[in-house]
Amino acid sequence: MATATSGCQLQALLLMALAAAVLTSTASGTLQYNFYSSSCPKAEEAVRNATVKIISGDRTMGAAIVRLFFHDCFGCDASILLDQSNSNPQPEKLAIPLRGYDAMNTIKAAVEAVCPGVVSCADVLAFAARDSVMVSGGFTFSMPGGRRDSLVSDMSNIFGSLPTPNMQVQQLVSSFGAKGLTSDDLVALSGAHSFGQTHCSFVTPRLYPTVDPTLNATYAGKLRSLCPQNSGGGKVLNNNNVTDPNVLSNQYYRNLGTGEVLFTSDQTLTSDAGTAKMVLDNAASPVMWMAKFAGAMVKMGGIQVLTGTQGEVRKVCGATNSGS
């Protein structure tokens, strides 16, 4: 449990991080804190209650919801949530296997029960990701609202846009930079790899035919036993070497120091002097990392949003209101 001093320190750092994020995300007035204070005062409470209930029933869902937010927010418009349809024959969700769609439908239904047709799926996902951090990480922050939902979803938008597990540090910096995120944001958000699940197929390139020399030898042996060569790669693994795979924490940065992380895109953060220093700082101060993570989540939540009269507010997250 945090001491009173660390709690005050965390609050101050969160305020500083979020103040910086506000300049990035809401200076143009496109997103606003307490956006639904008049139109749906209980919106965020409904999201929080539904999210807490879902994660209480299945602790793995915290990481799943945060990951879904990340994948949507390289363009935060709920396009990742659209199902296949005549007007969206190749939606984004076909490009990569993700969990959490049923959870989002449940959370959206809880909000619709309070305020029908008012709160966008994009905002529901952003609030749910924030609340997943609260449940799984033990800290929280404010998330602005005002996003609208996309009418289209195209899986081709995923390819070449999202960072991949085999990227090197400069590729990651460029990928995040193209979306207005800094190297500090990159390293802070990578801490989400402290919890959640992945598949052997994303890890076996570091294990076969020879072990990646940056991978801890003992950990590599464990991974080889879990992911035999030519096993098909579909087996689910817990992210990295952690005490509890359902807890979001700065343990990830300590794992980087010992070579006990799953992806090339993780370990490469120690290969550059600038990002390596950020890794050390985040490993040394969980409070500082929380503040940076919160600020980066808010910034990410402002990427390429639809606002005003753009898009629509979907009644259900898997389909446009026209149903086409």
Rank of each mutant, 00 (worst) to 15 (best):
L306F: 12
L94E: 15
P144I: 05
G57F: 15
V114P: 06
C76P: 01
M134Q: 01
G318I: 04
M290W: 10
G308Q: 05
C76N: 15
V114F: 11
S38L: 04
A46W: 11
P286I: 05
P213G: 00
T204C: 09
Y36F: 13
P116W: 07
T204I: 15
A21H: 09
M288T: 11
Y253L: 11
N230Q: 14
A43Q: 08
D72E: 06
S39K: 07
K222E: 12
V173C: 00
A283S: 06
Y101L: 14
Q304S: 12
N230A: 15
P144A: 14
I303A: 11
A27I: 14
L172M: 05
N255S: 08
N166V: 03
A19E: 05
G234N: 10
F141D: 05
V119D: 05
S194Q: 09
A113R: 15
S265I: 04
S285M: 04
H193S: 02
V187R: 04
G145H: 09
A43D: 01
D184Y: 11
K292N: 12
L237Y: 10
A188L: 07
G221N: 12
A217Y: 13
W289I: 08
G323H: 07
A291Y: 06
F195K: 09
G138D: 14
G62V: 00
Q304E: 07
A122D: 08
T204G: 07
T309W: 10
M143Q: 06
H199M: 03
R314A: 09
D131R: 00
T3E: 03
V242R: 11
N49G: 03
S322M: 04
S136F: 01
L226W: 10
M167W: 06
K108G: 01
A20C: 12
N321W: 15
K277T: 13
V203Y: 08
S156M: 15
A192P: 02
A128H: 06
N282W: 03
R59L: 05
I158M: 08
H193I: 03
D123R: 11
A20D: 08
V242T: 06
G62D: 00
S79I: 06
L215E: 11
D266N: 01
E312K: 06
L181K: 09
V211T: 13
I303Q: 14
I107C: 02
D77R: 08
S38I: 02
K93E: 03
G259Y: 03
S324T: 00
K235N: 13
C40M: 03
C317G: 12
G301S: 09
M16C: 01
K277R: 12
T60P: 04
R314G: 07
N157T: 15
Q251M: 02
D83E: 09
K93A: 07
A276H: 10
T140K: 13
D58Q: 14
K235Q: 11
D58L: 15
V22C: 00
I96V: 08
H71Y: 07
T51G: 06
G29N: 15
M16F: 09
F141E: 00
Q251H: 02
A43Y: 10
G138C: 11
D131N: 00
S174K: 15
A294D: 13
S265D: 07
E312Y: 15
